[in-house]
Simulated scan of single mutants.
Amino acid sequence: MNSAVDLPQSTLFASAYEHPKVLLPRRKPFYKTEYGAAYLGDSREHLAKMPDGSVNLVFTSPPYALHFKKEYGNVSKADYVEWFLTFAKEIFRVLADDGSFVLNIGGSYNPKYPTRSLYHFKLMIALVEEIGFHLAQECFWYNPAKMPVPAEWVTVRRVRIRDSVEYVWWFSKTPFPKADNRKVLRPYSADMLRLAKKGVKTTTRPSGHNINASFDKIANGGSIPTNVVEEQIASEMLVLGNNAANDVYTRRCKEAGIKIHPARFPAALPEFFIKLLTDEGDVVVDPFAGSNTAGSVAEQLQRRWIAMELVDEYLEASKFRFGE
Rank of each mutant, 00 (worst) to 15 (best):
A88I: 01
L127E: 09
M124P: 02
P111S: 11
G132V: 09
D98H: 09
A88S: 09
D97L: 09
M124N: 11
L95P: 08
I105H: 04
I125M: 10
D98T: 09
F133K: 07
G106D: 06
L118R: 12
E90I: 05
V102S: 10
V102H: 08
L118K: 13
A126P: 01
Y119A: 04
K122V: 06
I91P: 00
S117C: 07
I125A: 14
A126M: 03
E130D: 13
A88Q: 01
M124Q: 13
K112P: 05
Y113R: 15
F87A: 09
L127Y: 05
A126N: 04
E130S: 12
G132C: 11
Y109M: 13
G99D: 00
G107A: 15
G106E: 03
I91E: 05
K122N: 12
F133P: 07
R93W: 00
R116Q: 13
S108Q: 10
P114G: 08
S108I: 04
Y113W: 07
K89E: 15
A96H: 04
A126F: 01
F121G: 12
V102N: 08
P111E: 14
R116T: 11
I91V: 14
V94N: 13
I131Q: 12
K112Y: 14
F92G: 02
L103K: 02
F101M: 05
L103G: 03
E130M: 07
F121N: 08
D97V: 03
I105E: 08
H120I: 09
I125S: 12
T115P: 04
K89W: 04
E130C: 07
I91T: 03
G99W: 00
M124F: 10
I131S: 14
F92D: 05
L123V: 06
K122G: 05
D98N: 14
L95V: 06
L103M: 05
V128I: 15
L118Q: 11
L123Q: 06
F92L: 04
A88N: 02
I91H: 01
Y109T: 11
F87M: 06
G132Y: 05
E130Q: 13
A126Q: 03
F121V: 10
V102Q: 07
V102T: 09
F133M: 07
T115A: 15
L95N: 08
I131F: 08
H120P: 01
G107T: 11
R93I: 00
I125F: 08
E129Y: 05
I125G: 04
N110W: 07
D98W: 01
I91F: 02
R116M: 14
Y113Q: 14
